[in-house]
Design a binder for these strands. Structure first.
Length: 404
DNA sequence: TGCGTAATAT
DNA sequence: CATATTACGC
Protein backbone atom coordinates (compact mmCIF):
# COMPACT_ATOMS: atom_id res chain seq x y z
CA UNK A 1 0.00 0.00 0.00
CA UNK A 2 2.83 2.27 0.59
CA UNK A 3 3.49 2.46 -3.03
CA UNK A 4 1.72 5.13 -4.86
CA UNK A 5 -0.72 3.89 -7.33
CA UNK A 6 -0.05 5.84 -10.42
CA UNK A 7 -3.15 5.04 -12.26
CA UNK A 8 -5.68 5.81 -9.66
CA UNK A 9 -4.38 9.13 -8.83
CA UNK A 10 -7.77 10.30 -7.87
CA UNK A 11 -7.52 9.17 -4.36
CA UNK A 12 -4.93 11.52 -3.25
CA UNK A 13 -4.08 12.27 0.25
CA UNK A 14 -3.49 15.79 1.24
CA UNK A 15 -0.11 14.99 2.56
CA UNK A 16 1.01 13.64 -0.69
CA UNK A 17 -0.49 16.14 -2.89
CA UNK A 18 2.67 17.22 -4.60
CA UNK A 19 3.65 13.70 -5.19
CA UNK A 20 0.30 12.76 -6.48
CA UNK A 21 0.20 15.73 -8.65
CA UNK A 22 3.48 14.78 -10.07
CA UNK A 23 2.45 11.31 -10.88
CA UNK A 24 -0.79 12.59 -12.19
CA UNK A 25 0.96 14.96 -14.48
CA UNK A 26 3.22 12.23 -15.59
CA UNK A 27 0.28 10.13 -16.37
CA UNK A 28 -1.41 12.89 -18.19
CA UNK A 29 1.64 13.55 -20.20
CA UNK A 30 1.36 10.09 -21.56
CA UNK A 31 -1.98 10.82 -23.03
CA UNK A 32 -1.66 11.78 -26.58
CA UNK A 33 -5.09 13.05 -27.08
CA UNK A 34 -5.25 16.63 -26.18
CA UNK A 35 -8.92 16.85 -25.37
CA UNK A 36 -8.55 13.84 -23.22
CA UNK A 37 -5.66 15.38 -21.50
CA UNK A 38 -7.40 18.58 -20.83
CA UNK A 39 -10.44 16.77 -19.70
CA UNK A 40 -8.49 14.79 -17.24
CA UNK A 41 -6.72 17.78 -15.92
CA UNK A 42 -9.93 19.53 -15.62
CA UNK A 43 -11.55 16.75 -13.77
CA UNK A 44 -8.74 16.70 -11.34
CA UNK A 45 -8.90 20.38 -10.83
CA UNK A 46 -12.52 20.06 -10.18
CA UNK A 47 -11.94 17.54 -7.52
CA UNK A 48 -9.34 19.68 -5.94
CA UNK A 49 -11.65 22.59 -5.90
CA UNK A 50 -14.30 20.50 -4.38
CA UNK A 51 -11.97 19.42 -1.71
CA UNK A 52 -10.95 22.91 -1.11
CA UNK A 53 -14.46 23.96 -0.72
CA UNK A 54 -14.97 21.33 1.84
CA UNK A 55 -12.13 22.36 3.99
CA UNK A 56 -12.87 25.93 3.53
CA UNK A 57 -14.58 25.97 6.85
CA UNK A 58 -11.44 24.80 8.48
CA UNK A 59 -9.07 26.86 6.61
CA UNK A 60 -7.84 28.46 9.73
CA UNK A 61 -6.95 25.16 11.19
CA UNK A 62 -5.60 23.83 7.98
CA UNK A 63 -3.84 26.64 6.32
CA UNK A 64 -1.32 24.39 4.75
CA UNK A 65 -3.98 22.27 3.25
CA UNK A 66 -5.50 25.26 1.69
CA UNK A 67 -2.19 26.35 0.45
CA UNK A 68 -1.40 23.03 -1.04
CA UNK A 69 -4.72 22.67 -2.63
CA UNK A 70 -4.63 26.09 -4.02
CA UNK A 71 -1.20 25.56 -5.34
CA UNK A 72 -2.17 22.33 -6.94
CA UNK A 73 -5.20 23.87 -8.50
CA UNK A 74 -3.27 26.71 -9.93
CA UNK A 75 -0.58 24.47 -11.22
CA UNK A 76 -2.97 22.11 -12.88
CA UNK A 77 -4.90 24.91 -14.41
CA UNK A 78 -1.79 26.33 -15.85
CA UNK A 79 -0.93 22.99 -17.19
CA UNK A 80 -4.33 22.68 -18.71
CA UNK A 81 -4.05 26.02 -20.33
CA UNK A 82 -0.68 25.28 -21.70
CA UNK A 83 -1.86 21.98 -22.92
CA UNK A 84 -4.65 23.64 -24.71
CA UNK A 85 -2.56 26.34 -26.14
CA UNK A 86 -0.02 24.06 -27.56
CA UNK A 87 -2.55 21.77 -28.93
CA UNK A 88 -1.66 21.50 -32.51
CA UNK A 89 -5.08 21.24 -33.80
CA UNK A 90 -6.43 24.47 -35.04
CA UNK A 91 -9.40 22.89 -36.67
CA UNK A 92 -10.26 25.46 -39.14
CA UNK A 93 -13.81 25.87 -40.01
CA UNK A 94 -15.41 28.10 -42.45
CA UNK A 95 -18.48 30.06 -42.25
CA UNK A 96 -21.28 29.30 -44.56
CA UNK A 97 -24.00 31.78 -45.01
CA UNK A 98 -27.27 30.06 -44.70
CA UNK A 99 -29.64 32.45 -46.14
CA UNK A 100 -28.29 32.44 -49.60
CA UNK A 101 -31.36 32.57 -51.61
CA UNK A 102 -29.72 31.70 -54.80
CA UNK A 103 -26.64 29.72 -54.74
CA UNK A 104 -24.64 30.72 -57.66
CA UNK A 105 -22.31 28.01 -58.40
CA UNK A 106 -20.13 30.53 -59.90
CA UNK A 107 -17.28 30.21 -57.57
CA UNK A 108 -15.66 26.92 -57.42
CA UNK A 109 -14.34 25.87 -54.18
CA UNK A 110 -10.89 26.47 -55.38
CA UNK A 111 -9.60 28.90 -52.92
CA UNK A 112 -11.35 30.56 -50.15
CA UNK A 113 -11.02 34.17 -50.70
CA UNK A 114 -9.81 35.93 -47.79
CA UNK A 115 -11.40 39.20 -47.40
CA UNK A 116 -10.03 41.35 -44.79
CA UNK A 117 -12.66 43.81 -44.25
CA UNK A 118 -13.27 45.76 -41.23
CA UNK A 119 -16.67 47.05 -41.66
CA UNK A 120 -17.17 49.86 -39.39
CA UNK A 121 -20.11 51.44 -40.93
CA UNK A 122 -21.25 54.10 -38.69
CA UNK A 123 -24.86 53.78 -39.45
CA UNK A 124 -25.94 51.87 -36.49
CA UNK A 125 -29.20 53.44 -36.91
CA UNK A 126 -30.58 50.55 -38.70
CA UNK A 127 -31.88 47.72 -36.73
CA UNK A 128 -31.52 44.74 -38.83
CA UNK A 129 -29.71 46.63 -41.48
CA UNK A 130 -28.46 44.08 -43.85
CA UNK A 131 -27.34 40.90 -42.37
CA UNK A 132 -26.05 41.83 -39.06
CA UNK A 133 -28.46 39.94 -37.03
CA UNK A 134 -26.46 39.65 -33.99
CA UNK A 135 -28.14 37.21 -31.80
CA UNK A 136 -26.03 37.53 -28.86
CA UNK A 137 -27.29 39.67 -26.21
CA UNK A 138 -25.55 39.82 -22.96
CA UNK A 139 -23.72 37.87 -20.48
CA UNK A 140 -25.93 37.06 -17.67
CA UNK A 141 -25.09 35.83 -14.32
CA UNK A 142 -27.70 34.53 -12.33
CA UNK A 143 -26.89 35.96 -9.12
CA UNK A 144 -29.45 38.52 -8.56
CA UNK A 145 -28.31 41.35 -6.50
CA UNK A 146 -25.94 39.49 -4.41
CA UNK A 147 -23.21 41.25 -6.11
CA UNK A 148 -21.23 38.16 -5.90
CA UNK A 149 -20.86 37.56 -9.52
CA UNK A 150 -17.26 37.49 -10.10
CA UNK A 151 -17.19 39.67 -13.08
CA UNK A 152 -16.73 36.83 -15.34
CA UNK A 153 -15.47 38.68 -18.22
CA UNK A 154 -15.55 42.18 -17.14
CA UNK A 155 -17.61 44.53 -19.10
CA UNK A 156 -17.38 42.76 -22.34
CA UNK A 157 -20.89 42.96 -23.48
CA UNK A 158 -22.46 44.95 -20.86
CA UNK A 159 -20.85 47.95 -22.21
CA UNK A 160 -21.72 46.91 -25.64
CA UNK A 161 -25.31 46.50 -24.84
CA UNK A 162 -25.68 49.78 -23.29
CA UNK A 163 -23.81 51.46 -25.97
CA UNK A 164 -25.87 50.04 -28.68
CA UNK A 165 -29.13 50.78 -27.26
CA UNK A 166 -30.22 51.76 -30.64
CA UNK A 167 -30.15 48.17 -31.57
CA UNK A 168 -32.98 47.23 -29.40
CA UNK A 169 -35.00 46.77 -32.44
CA UNK A 170 -37.48 44.07 -32.00
CA UNK A 171 -38.68 44.56 -28.59
CA UNK A 172 -42.24 43.72 -28.70
CA UNK A 173 -42.59 43.58 -25.04
CA UNK A 174 -41.63 47.10 -24.67
CA UNK A 175 -38.82 46.61 -22.34
CA UNK A 176 -35.78 48.41 -23.25
CA UNK A 177 -33.11 46.48 -24.87
CA UNK A 178 -30.56 47.04 -22.28
CA UNK A 179 -30.64 45.76 -18.83
CA UNK A 180 -32.40 42.66 -19.80
CA UNK A 181 -31.99 40.59 -16.77
CA UNK A 182 -33.07 42.94 -14.13
CA UNK A 183 -36.11 43.72 -16.05
CA UNK A 184 -37.27 40.34 -16.97
CA UNK A 185 -36.43 38.88 -13.72
CA UNK A 186 -38.66 41.00 -11.72
CA UNK A 187 -41.77 41.59 -13.63
CA UNK A 188 -43.23 42.25 -16.92
CA UNK A 189 -43.34 38.61 -17.47
CA UNK A 190 -46.22 37.44 -19.36
CA UNK A 191 -45.98 33.77 -19.46
CA UNK A 192 -43.56 31.50 -17.85
CA UNK A 193 -40.98 34.05 -17.33
CA UNK A 194 -41.31 33.25 -13.74
CA UNK A 195 -39.24 30.25 -14.17
CA UNK A 196 -36.28 32.44 -13.75
CA UNK A 197 -37.48 33.73 -10.51
CA UNK A 198 -38.44 30.38 -9.28
CA UNK A 199 -35.11 29.15 -10.28
CA UNK A 200 -33.34 31.76 -8.38
CA UNK A 201 -35.41 31.17 -5.41
CA UNK A 202 -35.08 27.54 -5.31
CA UNK A 203 -31.44 27.55 -5.91
CA UNK A 204 -30.31 27.51 -2.34
CA UNK A 205 -32.27 24.42 -1.74
CA UNK A 206 -30.47 22.50 -4.32
CA UNK A 207 -27.24 20.96 -3.48
CA UNK A 208 -25.26 21.09 -6.54
CA UNK A 209 -22.36 18.79 -6.68
CA UNK A 210 -20.86 20.67 -9.43
CA UNK A 211 -19.63 23.29 -7.13
CA UNK A 212 -17.15 25.42 -8.97
CA UNK A 213 -19.13 28.34 -7.95
CA UNK A 214 -17.82 29.14 -4.59
CA UNK A 215 -14.64 27.35 -4.95
CA UNK A 216 -12.01 29.45 -3.49
CA UNK A 217 -12.14 32.91 -2.35
CA UNK A 218 -15.72 33.60 -2.84
CA UNK A 219 -17.97 33.90 0.04
CA UNK A 220 -20.18 31.00 0.43
CA UNK A 221 -22.85 32.17 -1.78
CA UNK A 222 -23.68 29.25 -3.84
CA UNK A 223 -27.03 30.68 -4.26
CA UNK A 224 -27.04 30.35 -7.93
CA UNK A 225 -26.39 26.73 -7.93
CA UNK A 226 -28.77 25.35 -10.37
CA UNK A 227 -29.38 21.82 -11.12
CA UNK A 228 -26.86 21.67 -13.80
CA UNK A 229 -25.71 18.21 -13.39
CA UNK A 230 -29.20 16.98 -13.56
CA UNK A 231 -29.21 14.85 -16.64
CA UNK A 232 -32.74 15.58 -17.46
CA UNK A 233 -32.48 19.15 -16.64
CA UNK A 234 -34.39 19.86 -19.72
CA UNK A 235 -37.47 21.20 -18.24
CA UNK A 236 -36.50 21.22 -14.70
CA UNK A 237 -36.99 24.89 -14.62
CA UNK A 238 -40.55 24.65 -15.48
CA UNK A 239 -41.33 21.84 -13.22
CA UNK A 240 -40.38 23.70 -10.17
CA UNK A 241 -42.02 26.85 -11.16
CA UNK A 242 -45.66 27.52 -10.78
CA UNK A 243 -46.22 28.91 -7.37
CA UNK A 244 -49.56 27.32 -7.45
CA UNK A 245 -51.20 30.63 -7.11
CA UNK A 246 -53.20 30.48 -10.25
CA UNK A 247 -53.90 26.91 -10.42
CA UNK A 248 -53.68 25.44 -13.84
CA UNK A 249 -54.24 28.15 -16.28
CA UNK A 250 -51.63 26.72 -18.49
CA UNK A 251 -51.44 23.04 -18.66
CA UNK A 252 -47.76 23.28 -18.91
CA UNK A 253 -45.66 21.12 -16.75
CA UNK A 254 -45.45 17.71 -18.19
CA UNK A 255 -47.23 18.46 -21.34
CA UNK A 256 -45.84 20.92 -23.69
CA UNK A 257 -44.70 24.17 -22.42
CA UNK A 258 -41.94 25.58 -24.38
CA UNK A 259 -39.04 27.02 -22.63
CA UNK A 260 -38.16 30.58 -22.98
CA UNK A 261 -35.91 31.29 -25.79
CA UNK A 262 -32.56 31.95 -24.42
CA UNK A 263 -29.89 33.44 -26.50
CA UNK A 264 -26.33 32.50 -26.28
CA UNK A 265 -24.28 35.24 -24.91
CA UNK A 266 -21.02 35.98 -26.62
CA UNK A 267 -19.09 34.72 -23.72
CA UNK A 268 -21.05 31.58 -23.67
CA UNK A 269 -20.47 31.12 -27.32
CA UNK A 270 -16.84 31.75 -26.81
CA UNK A 271 -16.71 28.98 -24.36
CA UNK A 272 -18.61 26.83 -26.70
CA UNK A 273 -16.15 27.36 -29.48
CA UNK A 274 -13.32 26.90 -27.13
CA UNK A 275 -14.67 23.58 -26.12
CA UNK A 276 -15.11 22.68 -29.72
CA UNK A 277 -11.52 23.39 -30.34
CA UNK A 278 -10.44 21.19 -27.55
CA UNK A 279 -12.61 18.45 -28.76
CA UNK A 280 -11.38 18.56 -32.25
CA UNK A 281 -13.95 20.50 -34.10
CA UNK A 282 -17.63 20.83 -34.29
CA UNK A 283 -18.06 17.76 -36.38
CA UNK A 284 -16.64 15.40 -33.91
CA UNK A 285 -17.54 17.03 -30.67
CA UNK A 286 -20.58 15.79 -28.91
CA UNK A 287 -22.94 17.89 -26.90
CA UNK A 288 -22.17 16.28 -23.68
CA UNK A 289 -18.48 16.67 -24.05
CA UNK A 290 -18.93 20.24 -24.96
CA UNK A 291 -21.09 20.90 -22.03
CA UNK A 292 -18.66 19.30 -19.71
CA UNK A 293 -15.87 21.36 -21.01
CA UNK A 294 -17.80 24.52 -20.89
CA UNK A 295 -18.68 23.96 -17.33
CA UNK A 296 -21.43 26.40 -17.31
CA UNK A 297 -24.02 25.50 -14.89
CA UNK A 298 -27.57 25.66 -15.92
CA UNK A 299 -26.59 24.82 -19.40
CA UNK A 300 -28.43 21.81 -20.55
CA UNK A 301 -27.41 19.18 -22.92
CA UNK A 302 -30.10 20.03 -25.33
CA UNK A 303 -29.14 23.61 -25.45
CA UNK A 304 -25.66 22.70 -26.35
CA UNK A 305 -26.94 20.23 -28.82
CA UNK A 306 -29.08 22.77 -30.48
CA UNK A 307 -26.32 25.25 -30.60
CA UNK A 308 -24.04 22.67 -32.00
CA UNK A 309 -26.51 21.84 -34.66
CA UNK A 310 -26.70 25.38 -35.74
CA UNK A 311 -23.01 25.74 -35.56
CA UNK A 312 -22.53 22.76 -37.73
CA UNK A 313 -24.85 24.19 -40.22
CA UNK A 314 -22.86 27.31 -40.38
CA UNK A 315 -19.44 25.95 -40.35
CA UNK A 316 -17.55 23.46 -42.29
CA UNK A 317 -14.16 22.10 -41.80
CA UNK A 318 -11.45 23.66 -43.77
CA UNK A 319 -8.84 21.51 -45.36
CA UNK A 320 -6.05 21.96 -42.91
CA UNK A 321 -4.41 25.13 -43.74
CA UNK A 322 -0.98 24.52 -45.05
CA UNK A 323 0.48 27.64 -43.75
CA UNK A 324 -0.79 27.34 -40.28
CA UNK A 325 0.00 30.77 -39.10
CA UNK A 326 0.82 31.36 -35.56
CA UNK A 327 -2.37 33.12 -34.89
CA UNK A 328 -4.56 30.31 -35.85
CA UNK A 329 -7.75 32.12 -35.59
CA UNK A 330 -9.99 29.28 -35.72
CA UNK A 331 -13.47 29.71 -36.69
CA UNK A 332 -14.25 32.23 -39.18
CA UNK A 333 -17.50 33.68 -39.58
CA UNK A 334 -19.00 36.22 -41.54
CA UNK A 335 -22.33 37.60 -40.91
CA UNK A 336 -21.99 38.47 -37.38
CA UNK A 337 -23.43 35.31 -36.10
CA UNK A 338 -20.59 33.19 -35.22
CA UNK A 339 -18.06 35.75 -34.82
CA UNK A 340 -14.52 34.76 -34.97
CA UNK A 341 -12.73 34.78 -31.80
CA UNK A 342 -9.13 34.12 -31.49
CA UNK A 343 -8.29 34.74 -27.96
CA UNK A 344 -9.14 31.71 -26.11
CA UNK A 345 -7.17 31.08 -23.07
CA UNK A 346 -7.55 34.43 -21.66
CA UNK A 347 -10.40 33.78 -19.41
CA UNK A 348 -8.98 30.93 -17.50
CA UNK A 349 -5.57 32.33 -17.61
CA UNK A 350 -6.58 35.64 -16.35
CA UNK A 351 -8.05 34.29 -13.23
CA UNK A 352 -5.67 31.50 -12.92
CA UNK A 353 -4.14 33.02 -9.91
CA UNK A 354 -5.77 32.22 -6.74
CA UNK A 355 -9.27 32.93 -7.28
CA UNK A 356 -9.59 30.21 -9.73
CA UNK A 357 -13.11 29.43 -10.49
CA UNK A 358 -12.64 29.51 -14.18
CA UNK A 359 -16.15 29.28 -15.14
CA UNK A 360 -18.37 31.56 -13.46
CA UNK A 361 -21.99 31.94 -13.59
CA UNK A 362 -22.38 32.32 -17.20
CA UNK A 363 -25.73 31.95 -18.54
CA UNK A 364 -27.88 32.28 -21.44
CA UNK A 365 -29.66 35.47 -21.39
CA UNK A 366 -33.31 35.12 -21.45
CA UNK A 367 -34.22 36.82 -24.52
CA UNK A 368 -37.86 37.26 -24.60
CA UNK A 369 -38.22 40.59 -26.10
CA UNK A 370 -35.34 40.19 -28.36
CA UNK A 371 -32.60 41.97 -26.69
CA UNK A 372 -30.21 40.66 -29.11
CA UNK A 373 -27.77 42.72 -30.83
CA UNK A 374 -24.70 43.92 -29.40
CA UNK A 375 -23.93 46.38 -31.71
CA UNK A 376 -24.14 47.30 -34.91
CA UNK A 377 -20.81 46.57 -35.88
CA UNK A 378 -18.21 47.36 -33.49
CA UNK A 379 -18.88 44.07 -32.07
CA UNK A 380 -16.41 41.48 -31.29
CA UNK A 381 -13.77 42.82 -29.15
CA UNK A 382 -12.66 46.14 -28.37
CA UNK A 383 -9.51 45.43 -30.15
CA UNK A 384 -9.74 45.48 -33.80
CA UNK A 385 -6.10 45.54 -34.34
CA UNK A 386 -6.31 41.99 -35.46
CA UNK A 387 -6.75 41.51 -39.06
CA UNK A 388 -10.17 40.23 -39.46
CA UNK A 389 -9.66 37.82 -42.17
CA UNK A 390 -12.84 36.19 -43.00
CA UNK A 391 -12.48 33.11 -44.90
CA UNK A 392 -15.46 32.80 -46.91
CA UNK A 393 -16.60 30.43 -49.38
CA UNK A 394 -18.96 31.13 -52.08
CA UNK A 395 -21.00 28.06 -52.24
CA UNK A 396 -23.34 26.78 -49.73
CA UNK A 397 -23.10 23.32 -48.69
CA UNK A 398 -25.87 21.63 -46.95
CA UNK A 399 -24.46 19.37 -44.37
CA UNK A 400 -26.57 16.55 -45.42
CA UNK A 401 -25.85 13.00 -44.67
CA UNK A 402 -24.13 12.49 -47.90
CA UNK A 403 -21.44 14.74 -46.82
CA UNK A 404 -18.33 13.07 -45.71
C1' DT B 1 -28.75 7.46 -22.34
C1' DG B 2 -27.03 10.19 -25.67
C1' DC B 3 -26.52 11.87 -30.37
C1' DG B 4 -28.19 13.58 -34.77
C1' DT B 5 -31.66 15.68 -37.14
C1' DA B 6 -36.34 17.13 -38.38
C1' DA B 7 -40.17 19.70 -37.03
C1' DT B 8 -41.93 23.50 -34.77
C1' DA B 9 -42.16 27.78 -32.14
C1' DT B 10 -40.75 32.60 -31.43
C1' DC C 1 -35.58 34.43 -41.79
C1' DA C 2 -32.63 33.13 -37.95
C1' DT C 3 -32.35 31.08 -33.76
C1' DA C 4 -33.91 28.18 -30.05
C1' DT C 5 -36.84 24.36 -28.32
C1' DT C 6 -39.00 20.10 -28.75
C1' DA C 7 -39.88 15.67 -30.92
C1' DC C 8 -38.36 11.49 -32.86
C1' DG C 9 -35.52 7.75 -34.52
C1' DC C 10 -31.31 5.20 -33.93
Amino acid sequence: MGSVSPELSLDFRPTFVPKTITSFLKEVSLIGNVPDKVSKLDAFVKRLEEEMRKIDAFKRELPLCMLLLNDAIVALKEESVQCMSRSVEPVLEEFIPLKNKKENNQSEEDGALITKRKEKDSNNNNCNSNDKKNWMSSVQLWNTDDGDYRSIDRKLDTKRNVGDSSQGCKNKVGETAFMPFKANLGFGVRKERKEEVALTLLSPGIKNLNDESCSTGSRTSCSRAVSSSAPNAQSNFRSVSQPLSQHHQQQQQQQTARKERRCWSPELHRRFVNALQQLGGSQVATPKQIRELMQVDGLTNDEVKSHLQKYRLHTRRLPASTTNPANQSVVVLGSGLWMSQDQYGESSKGSSSQSGSPQGPLQLATNTGGISTPGGDSMVDDEDAKSESYTWKGHIHKPGKDDV
